[in-house]
């Protein structure tokens, strides 16, 4: 064991401070130190994306980042996306289009999709499939995930147009 570090993170808008060994993986720190259990551990080798969170504006697999590396970062997890009585448009659309089954990949999937749509607000189906290729789902076969994201994109765009 090595000495514990004083870690400061801003998670879903809240400042968090705690002690952790540098080797602790960010995913475990979030899940076990901060009780943020939305992101999951699926493969541990950065293939499946179940642990995806947004760190300083990047979609990151938090199983492949030490908590020490994240020290000082601003993090958004699924818990920071939407509110129970005001779901994010992606959350609404995943439900509407049956974009999830067991739900294990869903937090990483939606977190990644928020970033994808931020960077590319009007993606083609191919761009969605390519942009979501870092997230594995074992249940849905992706067809309805792709549909959910495309539908969310058009809703967001329609809302933007209406606002203008």
């Amino acid at each position: 064991m090595s000495d514990k570090m004083h870690i400061k993170l801003k998670v879903n808008g809240e400042d968090k401070e705690f002690l952790a060994e540098p080797r602790e993986l960010l995913i475990y720190a979030l899940r076990e130190k901060l009780n943020i259990t939305g992101p999951h551990v699926g493969c541990e080798t950065s293939h499946c994306g179940a642990c995806t969170v947004t760190i300083d504006g990047k979609s990151v697999k938090s199983c492949t980042m030490f908590v020490a590396q994240a020290n000082g970062a601003e993090i958004t997890t699924i818990e920071g996306i939407g509110e129970p009585d005001a779901l994010h448009v992606l959350q609404e659309n995943f439900r509407e289009h049956h974009g999830l089954q067991c739900g294990f990949c869903t937090p990483g999937m939606i977190t990644r999709a928020t970033k994808l749509l931020e960077e590319n607000p009007n993606p083609t189906e191919e761009e969605v499939r390519f942009g979501m290729a870092g997230n594995i789902c074992r249940c849905t076969g992706y067809q309805n995930i792709v549909k959910s994201i495309l539908s969310a994109a058009s809703e967001i765009n329609a809302a933007k147009e209406a606002a203008q």
């Binding site: 943020i36 818990e79 129970p84 739900g103």
Partner: peptide, 11 residues
Amino acid sequence: DARFTQGKGNY
């Protein structure tokens, strides 16, 4: 889906 899409599943 309400709980799964909000990261509130309990595994």
